[in-house]
Design a protein around this nucleic acid. Structure first.
Lengths: 180, 180
DNA sequence: TCACCCTATATCTGAATTGATATAGTTTTC
DNA sequence: GAAAACTATATCAATTCAGATATAGGGTGA
């Protein structure tokens, strides 16, 4: 629904090619929004049909020809309109937390192992994000927000692993009918 | 990729119908994973073909006939296998934070308005989650984790809105060519 | 010089997901 | 007693998304 808007947002300050958009998306917008080339090119085509961007074909400098996209006045209006409409609350679709929700299916030692491993996974992702060159302006702020949120999750996972009772003995109500 | 696994996880402790799974998904797994009926029925069919669940058709008690799904031993093994494989780090695809990343496109007062509104949206979602009956066992824990994360995000948004400089004047590097 | 990597474009498949619609009986409400 | 809401199933179209593949020129290193 809003990949086109993200692309418009990236084009706000300077025109660029689809390839550069893909790189910028992965490096700067990083964990907040991801998309493959196979999504980006069709999205740019649609933006063009909608009149939100203009295409200029450049002679090849290195490799094949380059398609440079530039945001139009209509495109800028569209970005503002998008920003102005209310955002959906974070849905937090999260594989790791979801697995924790079904931890009941595992015996004790594996429960602990899962929590420990997931905490490591998050910690590693945070480190990776910190290592890559931070973007500028609000892009940097937003990335900090994402990292902040991951850190909260990491602390929470660690906390759950620490309260041994919860990991050791889930509340009776949901205990599986373990064949004794 | 893992809706089938979530369904298996819900079937772990007791068999139920597609309808009940949909309700349980929305009420208990709530913000961690969502799915529409139109996803659930095909997923159940695939689980059945894979031998992870068994179907028993019940005579209608209220309304039409009911299809009761029960997890098989193979299904339980599959859940354990799924839980054992490493989970991807939270990608935090988040419309609200993404919009903040492009706040540069808005004039000052609207920036503040956007942040304030997003904070309200999150607060409301948290309240809504707290009001609905909490699930049992690890489902409850996981929900707490999700709420915890939302609260962290809310605090962060509030913090950003509070540091007026950031909202008032983004770092020069990315400052828009404000016609002064 | 040959192989490999990087820039750069683009398409295709298939799965995941959303949203709308259809059907039909039962229970609740006015 | 009619309308509305709930239980329950299911399909369809459209879109999003991920992963693989194709093409092609230029630069880099063994």
């Amino acid at each position: 629904m809003s990949l086109p808007h993200v692309l418009l947002g990236l084009l706000w300050s300077s025109p660029s090619t689809g390839y550069d958009l893909a790189r910028s998306l992965e490096e700067d917008v990083a964990p907040l929004w991801r998309a493959e080339m196979s999504q980006i090119y069709p999205a740019l085509a649609r933006l063009r049909r909608a009149g939100f961007v203009l295409l200029r074909v450049l002679g090849p400098r290195r490799g094949p020809r380059r398609n440079l996209y530039r945001i139009t006045a209509t495109g800028r209006r569209e970005v503002k309109r998008w920003l102005a409409e209310p955002a959906a609350p974070p849905s937090s679709k999260d594989e790791g937390l979801t697995k924790i929700a079904f931890l009941e299916a595992l015996p004790l030692p594996e429960r602990r192992a899962l929590l420990a491993r997931y905490e490591r996974t998050i910690a590693e992702e945070i480190r990776r994000l910190r290592e890559t060159a931070p973007p500028h302006g609000f892009l940097r702020e937003a990335r900090r927000g994402a990292i902040d949120r991951m850190e909260a999750t990491r602390r929470w996972v660690r906390g759950l692993a620490g309260e041994s009772p919860a990991v050791a003995a889930p509340p009776a109500a949901a205990a599986p009918p373990k064949k004794r």
